[in-house]
Write a protein that binds this DNA or RNA. Structure first.
Lengths: 261, 261
DNA sequence: GGAGGATTACCATTGAGCGGGAATCCGAAG
DNA sequence: CTTCGGATTCCCGCTCAATGGTAATCCTCC
């Protein structure tokens, strides 16, 4: 920005400021914000005041500040997430009504699954997905579905890097994963028992856009001991097709391999 | 910012840029963005490129740009809306399951109701609420609930200004509205037949925070001809209490008037 | 091939942003 | 009441990042 010192753009600082807030820290004093962002004190105060002016941040009675309603509103309204969410929600409600555990919708972003919607807060089941939360691709059923339908060049580069092993069942071997991904494409769904948390297992299916590429992964998390997990697949698939259609998808293009004639 | 000409801060421009996107325009060319915002061409391109750098905006194959996933993620994760939403959603699902029409959660912001959550996309019923959408306070059941529980100084200033009459049943007279608000406080809910659209009517109840102030309004929209609309009130009230409790509310403080002994 | 628009490249100008330092405010502890 | 540590605001000169014209280039349709 004008002047340098830090050599960082205002926009970069905005990102720092907004990033300082998360689900565990939705509000804090300006001083603390300065500490968390590492910005010079004076600068922090000036920026915060500018943002308060525009209602992008808000000051609460105690003096602490938090992300402003206006910011949430502008971003939510203009973002494509809303459209995807709108299309998906009715179907997710149906799934939720039948499956009774938690239903999530995730997209691929920056080599991770980003969950953009989630229904059901059943405390009896371990489920670490959160809205606007991220999890690794190779350790979630949603992630595997998204990865399985990515361009192979992307898969290659992703599988080339070291993968964390979360539990016994987490696959980390590239060759093994490749075979697994092929299976997912073949069967049309991914079922992963306890890949991140041993107690629960996830089932995920792909959601397609008009161009027949995968837009998102719809998934449910169920207790691992539940043996009829596979019975959930048809419900999920039907819902995913509904969502896809709502997004403008018109069925597989000719030439795409099908399950059966 | 550095240099003036327009005499506008970068932050103001950011707001302009983000505001240029809405649910009907989730993506556009940079040139069009420049037109919509009224910013100089070159400036628009430069700003957009900076934002693309930070992944706050994203470029799609066609060249059009849209609000970036990162922006949505950062704002959603850090915003207090998520907490409110998380608390409310399970109860909203229950209401939705029983009432079958659309269930919404709205807060008071800038003299309007801002809807932050909505379940149910029943096309058979006219419902103009949208997530991140706004509607006037005096013409929605949610708005009236929020207004009824606002500080009287705020009510005064709000009622002092001219109010738009949307349908026959929209109340616009301050005195009449005041009486109505008193009734809402007394009964604990607002029921408005066709205040904005004649075909549907809304029922709303307040959601309280730990300090016993109203945080939000929970409401359902049902067809107007449905005469047992009142029967929906208990469900809503129970759900609202559940949400309030999830927010840390601990029941009415002593001294607060109750419906009955 | 050419007209109209979108996008990029170039560049001189300058005041908005910067941030150190000091003063002030405020609440809690002594 | 005084002290003390932290949060917040004020002040202010420096300077380069941001600005936004103009012009060149790149696309796309007719």
């Amino acid at each position: 920005m004008a002047n340098s010192a830090s050599g960082e753009s205002i926009i970069g600082r905005l990102v720092k400021i907004v990033s300082a807030f998360d689900d565990r820290h939705t509000s804090m004093s300006v001083a603390e914000l300065g500490r968390r962002t590492g910005l010079p004190v004076t600068t922090t105060y000036r920026l915060v005041n500018d943002l308060l002016q525009e209602r992008l941040l808000e000051r609460e009675p105690g003096g602490d500040i938090h992300i402003g309603t206006r910011m949430w509103e502008l971003v939510s309204r203009g973002s494509k997430m809303l459209g995807l969410r709108e299309a998906a929600l009715p179907f997710m409600e149906d799934v939720q009504a039948v499956v009774q555990h938690s239903t999530t919708l995730g997209i691929l972003d920056s080599d991770e699954v980003l969950y953009i919607e989630r229904l059901g807060s059943d405390k009896t089941i371990v489920d670490i997905t959160k809205i606007a939360g991220r999890l690794p691709l190779h350790a979630t059923s949603s992630g595997l579905v998204l990865l399985a339908h990515s361009p192979s060049s992307y898969q290659d580069s992703f599988l080339a890097r070291p993968l964390t092993k979360f539990t016994e069942t987490t696959l980390t071997d590239p060759a093994q994963l490749r075979r697994h991904l092929a299976g997912i494409r073949q069967r049309g769904f991914a079922a992963m028992p306890g890949v991140i948390v041993p107690e629960s297992s996830g089932i995920a299916v792909p959601v397609f856009g008009p161009d027949n590429t995968v837009r998102a992964a719809l998934s449910v998390v169920v207790p691992r001991n539940e043996e009829n997990a596979a019975s959930r697949v048809p419900v999920l698939m039907a819902a995913a097709r509904g969502i896809s259609r709502a997004l403008g998808w018109r069925g597989e293009l000719k030439g795409t391999l099908r399950q059966s004639h």
